[in-house]
Write a protein that binds this DNA or RNA. Structure first.
Lengths: 220, 220
DNA sequence: CCTACCGATCGGTAGG
DNA sequence: CCTACCGATCGGTAGG
């Protein structure tokens, strides 16, 4: 109602005298808290199936207050996906800056990604299955960053001297590697007997040497 | 288009006078047409975001008529996922019945799965991202069949004599293989320069031998 | 920071 | 008493 809105404006004017500029110092912290509650909600209900009321309840706040921190459902989605892919880019940059030999570089990259994945299962599912709900410009921002990550992996794989004749298959081979690590979100559990760290080694071994003993293959 | 296919089904209907009792002979054909329209809709909008009105429009029928063929949205979802995983089980059985030597059996399995994937992109996405929306009993039916497929792959991988010390990692290694082929749904396009058939060979090669030349690795 | 609401659309069903 | 089918609208709930 306009009466309530008017009253709210007057209260804001009064507060403006005491706190003349900027957002509350806790504003960004609140947004982070909302984001961390939103990621698992979007992951398990799907973006379309998750409601803002449900999110507000999960955060212990009202829906109008939720809209005070985020202008809309899509902005939440963008921040989750964009923030997550930013962290992945950062990991590739940090590993690159260590100037490791090719195979060590490769293994470290897999290891650091699995370490990140272990604590970002919800964000990863949102990135994989909900980015399509973003409007074009936001979606393209996220997808461009995804391509940056893929390109860096492809570059590192290129330094490993892949088998002859596979140079034009650089991208498919890179995507096969991503399949190996990204598919863990459908089956690997942090509380299981096989750890994310174990998986990093197994994936690196299979990608570099295959899953089958060369000795047994000599007789086949 | 599936909408056209559905309309074609309707044109072949006989009148009530000719078919006095039971379901219309085209009833199952109509259901199949609806299913084929629903799969891409669920895949791109997500189960929660896809509406029954939209589906009815895509099929060229009214919503009440849609409900004549399917009692609810969830039944559609179940039929898509269940029918698809049934086909995957059938593929494993057909390949097994050929009694091929281990490596040929393995390569044939990958090849046949990629061949199926090429024409079932929507169904696969529904299976991966929408099965969680099913009620417990239907979801467990589908998940049990998924496990059957995984078990058969694990069995075949077991015949390949994997590297020593990896026997307790049979399931993780199998899931890594599924990652390699299933992740294609996020990036491989049927109209691209790399075909699904190409991918089958590349995946088999990497899984069996690794992506990197053993010769180059001797010097690392 | 809340209750109270809106325009629209949801999944599903009424009468005929 | 059955299936096939439509225009209109139900009770609730979505995002805002």
């Amino acid at each position: 109602m306009s009466g309530n809105a008017f009253a709210a404006c007057r209260r804001t004017q009064k507060t403006a005298l005491e706190m003349p500029r900027g957002k509350s110092p806790t504003f960004e912290l609140q947004r982070t808290g909302i984001l961390q509650a939103a990621a698992p909600l979007f992951a398990e209900r799907g973006f379309a199936g998750a409601s803002m009321s449900e999110l507000a309840n999960a955060c212990g706040i009202s829906k109008p207050l939720l809209y005070h921190y985020y202008d809309g459902k899509e902005d939440l989605l963008f921040d989750i996906a964009n923030g997550y892919v930013d962290r992945l880019i950062k990991i590739t940059a940090q590993v690159r800056d260590r100037h490791l030999p090719p195979e060590t570089h490769f293994r470290t990259l897999i290891e650091q990604f699995m370490r990140e994945y272990e604590h970002a299962q919800a964000q990863h599912m949102v990135l994989v299955q909900d980015v399509k709900f973003l409007k074009t410009s936001q979606r393209e921002t996220v997808e461009a960053k995804e391509r940056q990550v893929v390109d860096e992996f492809a570059r590192v794989i290129g330094t490993l001297k892949p088998r002859v004749g596979k140079r034009k298959l650089r991208v498919p081979i890179t995507m096969i590697l991503f399949g190996m690590i990204n598919w863990t979100f459908t089956w690997l559990r942090a509380d299981g007997s096989v750890t994310y760290s174990d998986m990093a080694d197994i994936v690196s071994d299979i990608f570099l040497n295959g899953a089958v003993s060369p000795r047994s293959r000599e007789h086949s």
